[in-house]
Design a protein around this nucleic acid. Sequence first.
DNA 1: TTTGAATAAATAAATTTTTATCGATTGCCC
DNA 2: GGGCAATCGATAAAAATTTATTTATTCAAA
Lengths: 208, 208
Amino acid sequence: MKTSEKNVSIQTLRRLPVYLHYLKSLGGALPAVSATIIAEALGLNDVQVRKDLGSVSGSGRPKKGYVTSELIEELEDFLGCNKHTAAVLLGVGNLGRALLSYHGFSDYGLEIVAAFDSSSKVIGSACGGKIVLPMSDLERVCKNKNVSLGILTVPSANAQAAADELVGHGIKAIWNFAPSVIKVPEGVLVENENLASSLAVLSNHLSV
Amino acid sequence: MKTSEKNVSIQTLRRLPVYLHYLKSLGGALPAVSATIIAEALGLNDVQVRKDLGSVSGSGRPKKGYVTSELIEELEDFLGCNKHTAAVLLGVGNLGRALLSYHGFSDYGLEIVAAFDSSSKVIGSACGGKIVLPMSDLERVCKNKNVSLGILTVPSANAQAAADELVGHGIKAIWNFAPSVIKVPEGVLVENENLASSLAVLSNHLSV
DNA sequence: TTTGAATAAATAAATTTTTATCGATTGCCC
DNA sequence: GGGCAATCGATAAAAATTTATTTATTCAAA
């Protein structure tokens, strides 16, 4: 219990990176921003923005707002952007390769230290500057690199087995891109990145 | 106003594809399923499952549950899986290519009819069975193929301009994978697929 | 048939999340 | 300095969402 002791709701937590991205996108154009301005730009309620920011900052001043650079720093600090988190990626298919090639994660302190696959077709090949390793190397890497996050981009059928293995090696959080539900012990967090769910929202809108 | 007239909450809407996926994964093993079983398998509250299913089905019978095949059909029907939706993809980078190569969208009635990019480096190249077209072809394709959904996988800086163009060509929904907020007129839905938000939830868990 | 167990459906309670209101503070203009 | 407008922070209200409880239905077995 240190930085993130405060009681921040999941919804707030999801919005914080959006604020951070917006503030960075300003490129220093505004030395100070108000919650009103942010809300306007992002299409949100200003009270909500103020409340969200209040949970990480508390340095807002009436009439002036927040000092942009300070707010960015506070958000980065809260989100752990400056704190290295080591992750492994399991399943080097299309999506896995896309994630490996994406270099934006480092902005949030995440480093994919290694990628694994069970197919000999991709083992040994390079992607995003990393050599794809066989699953047998997983345990060693997890221990040596102090890996705490696992990224699952394996086929749906293999997701549970892969998750079990990750948990067995001490992983505390799993980012699941497989469209299936995985079961993990208490204390391990699974965040599902379910494209079908988003698609459902879109389709529903289109069908009205 | 036809199929999806019912007042289904966004949260419910997001869970429906999860139910569908689970039911399909059973592969006919269970002729009938109860909300209790589904809830157990998916780690949800059984009342919630029942309520969710009630909004699309209403054919559950005490002691028995729902007829699996019927439920699948009702879910597919509600989610528009059997109703063709044409989409265009803008921005053929790593992520764009991954999405183009993913063939699971057709299960949900979505077909990416064409991909576009502004860079001559990728225009003309093939990906996922489609030739990447120049942006100048966008209008023609949108009109001819009756495109209603746009998928944005362009760099953040170009997202708003791309969105504006899509809206100008009559697109009614945008699936935004760029980590930026885009503004659209009333009546157009934007669904943000923000990896940073998910990452925030994971990081927060890890830092406690 | 009757009884009991499982379960859907309806209703109610609790929780979470969003939005509104209000007072206090700050900076700016006169 | 005094008044005005913008804005924060806190509190309260409202809305949405989840969870619990109750009731009623159905099947199956005694």
